[in-house]
Design a protein around this nucleic acid. Structure first.
Length: 396
DNA sequence: CGACGGGACGC
DNA sequence: CGACGGGACGC
């Protein structure tokens, strides 16, 4: 199932198609590939649409749940790096030791929802000048043109990496709700008549401009405009307020003036699992940081082994099935905020889950909402129990 | 009914 | 007219 706004993964290796039995054999003929393609790595992934707050270590943690990671790099803005740690550019690279792990990561992590994002995981192309600046901005599209129609129009000119048709704001909000709700595939969307097409190669994009700019699509009356998209690095985006760099979480926690760093609408973490009303209640509770309840939790949590664990809040998840894997915990908790790490506790002999696990989240408020929302949630045929970690143990 | 890890700063 | 949810190749 493809999620709203996510493109089907184009086959990364143009000549290979889906029903090739997943190749665990190492005998791929990379050197004899025709077409002058650079050899594509079978272990190196590009990860796009990462949540703004996700750190390189959190990314490594997430991808290590699949297999041994050789290297991991989050791309950050070099300009802001002068003052602080550079702002995340929302994408990064993960290189595995083993090709089969890379493939598994694509299968299990592509489309994973984390906070307000749906990450995309695909093979990285070999870096080269030829693939840069291949993003096109298209306007004047007929309102009834769908993403697939757009791709059909442009596909004769090259390999499409991504495509997108912009929607009316109202429907965007709507689709985000559905999207977080997990039932959001194929949301009808009022097209704004503009979109983006990213080609693999810049030459392909240039040719599409030459061939399609000013032409009238079949069934339309208006010519379309096709040009290179603005480069995000030299656009005139408003400079985020300094406070966003200094204390991005404080602004949210205290409910002050909302300034999304990128100046768009504010994302409210709607629970995938409960009604909006219940979630808002949970958010409000979470905001009362100095209530007696919160005070107890805070004090109690400072004890060794308890919920407050260095830079994050450790959450105990009970009643997991024996086959549970880490990605389940990422999927459950990711939508509620910054998740630093997850751990499924397994029996050393059988390697089956012992029925519980831990999730560490960065922000108290988000942890509270996650607990409120997920405690009592039925996963499969099991009712989960979710709470802050205590210091219970066999030894004590 | 069942129920809170593990690796480890490092002097 | 229009610029995304989301700065796609190592910032």
């Amino acid at each position: 199932m493809m999620t709203n706004g996510m493109d089907t993964l184009p086959q990364q290796n143009g000549s290979i198609h889906t029903n090739s039995t997943s190749s665990s054999s190492n005998s791929h003929n990379s050197s004899s590939q025709a077409g002058g393609n650079q050899e594509e790595s079978k272990t190196n992934l590009i990860v796009n649409y990462l949540p703004q707050t996700m750190t390189q270590e959190e990314i490594r943690s997430l991808f290590s749940s699949i297999g041994d990671v050789e290297s991991c790099k989050l791309i950050r803005d070099k300009v802001t790096e002068v003052l602080f740690v550079g702002q995340s550019l929302g994408y990064g690279f993960v290189n595995y030791h083993r090709p089969e792990d890379a493939e598994k990561a694509i299968n299990t992590l592509n489309g994973l929802r984390l906070q307000n994002k749906t990450i995309k995981v695909s093979f990285a192309r070999p870096s080269s000048e030829a693939i840069k600046g291949a993003n096109l901005y298209v306007s004047g599209l007929p309102k009834n043109m769908a993403q697939q129609d757009l791709e059909n129009l442009f596909s004769p000119y090259g390999r499409i990496i991504t495509s997108r048709i912009l929607c009316d704001n109202i429907t965007v909000l709507f689709s985000v709700r559905q999207f977080v709700g997990g039932a959001g595939d194929n949301i009808p969307c009022l097209s704004k008549g503009v979109g983006f097409i990213r080609f693999d190669q810049r030459i392909e994009a240039e040719r599409a401009i030459q061939e399609l700019n000013g032409t009238i699509p079949k069934g339309s009356t208006e010519p379309i405009t096709v040009k290179f998209a603005n480069n995000p690095s030299n656009n005139n985006k408003a400079i985020p307020p300094l406070a966003a760099y200094l204390a991005p979480q404080a602004a949210r926690r205290f409910g002050g003036p909302i300034h999304h760093p990128t100046g768009r609408f504010r994302y409210i973490p709607l629970s995938p699992l409960s009604s909006t009303g219940k979630t808002m209640l949970a958010i409000n509770k979470g905001l009362q940081r100095y209530s007696p309840l919160a005070g107890d939790i805070l004090a109690n949590s400072m004890m060794p082994g308890n919920a407050m664990n260095g830079s994050g809040w450790c959450i105990f998840v009970y009643n997991l099935a024996p086959e549970t894997e880490e990605n389940v915990l990422w999927q459950l908790f990711g939508p509620f905020g910054a998740v630093q790490s997850v751990k499924v506790i397994r029996d050393l002999q059988t390697n089956k889950c012992k029925g519980f696990g831990f999730v560490t989240m960065t922000n108290y408020d988000e942890a509270v909402v996650a607990i409120q929302s997920l405690n009592g949630y039925t996963l499969g045929n099991r009712v989960l129990q979710v709470s802050f970690k205590t210091n219970k143990s066999k030894a004590s």
